[in-house]
């Protein structure tokens, strides 16, 4: 096992020298998580809107279920998907196991409840007059919905940022359904887990720094967004 100071120095060197293996891992992480959150966003937004603006039997139960799903462990999602996607599983014919698509599905499942729960809170808190004003000015329900979304955009962007933050750092699902294959499905969290188990800390530290910088950036973005959202008199 290399000393911490030496590992940190090598980690810094890997980052600034543009080490191709390291940057490939970072690229895979961002690409997979971004696609997952972008696929989930429209469906989550529609669900959040329906929960905030429509009255239907079982609405409260659905909200409670989404809130419960916020704390679902990533490894449970990974295990369930593994069983579904493995050759012997019901979706085995899709041949998705150990691909980026499988990772995207896993991350989709993980971020969907966050997007719905936070999106629902943002839309629920938005002023009801927006919807009524839009309708009375001649908007159809679809356009009125887009107007509400526009007015609540700061809260909704915060939901996207939080969802992205959750999935880019998750290891359980990606490890199980992605398989941690170099240059294919190895992302930042799975690479950190692997390098640590091998006692090679430099790459792990470098990737950890990237995650920490990402967390800082996301938090600053969130703070900025929340600051812009509360200027209504």
């Amino acid at each position: 096992m290399e000393p911490l100071s030496e590992a940190s120095y090598r980690a810094l060197y890997l980052l600034v020298s543009g080490d191709s293996a390291l940057w490939a891992i970072i690229w895979i992480s961002f690409s997979v998580s971004l696609r997952a959150v972008l696929f989930a966003a429209p469906f989550a937004l529609l669900t959040a809107f329906a929960l905030a603006y429509l009255k239907f039997p079982g609405r409260r139960l659905v909200i409670a279920l989404f809130n419960t799903a916020l704390s679902i462990p990533a490894v449970v999602v990974g295990l369930t998907l593994y069983l579904l996607l493995s050759r012997a599983g019901p979706l085995g014919d899709w041949r998705l196991l150990f691909t980026q698509d499988a990772m995207i599905i896993g991350q989709f499942v993980l971020c969907f409840p966050i997007l719905v729960a936070m999106g629902h809170s943002a839309l629920q808190a938005s002023d009801r007059r927006i919807w009524e004003t839009a309708l009375t000015l001649g908007a159809d329900p679809w356009r009125a919905m887009l107007t509400v979304v526009h007015e609540a955009r700061f809260g909704l962007i915060a939901a996207l940022v939080a969802g992205f933050g959750r999935i880019i750092a998750e290891v359980g699902s990606s490890m199980m359904v992605g398989g941690n294959i170099l240059n294919v499905t190895r992302n930042i969290p799975t690479a950190i887990a692997l390098e640590t188990s091998r006692g090679s800390f430099a790459q792990g530290i470098a990737l950890g720094v990237v995650l920490l910088l990402l967390a800082l950036t996301l938090n600053l973005t969130l703070t900025g967004i929340q600051g812009r959202g509360d200027i209504r008199p």
Binding site: R129, I130, T133, T136, G138, H150
Partner: peptide, 16 residues
């Protein structure tokens, strides 16, 4: 009614 009537709230909402 929606095509011919406009309703203004007590405190009207102006969009951002």
């Amino acid at each position: 009614l929606r095509r011919n009537v406009c309703y203004l709230h007590q405190r009207p909402y102006l969009f951002d």
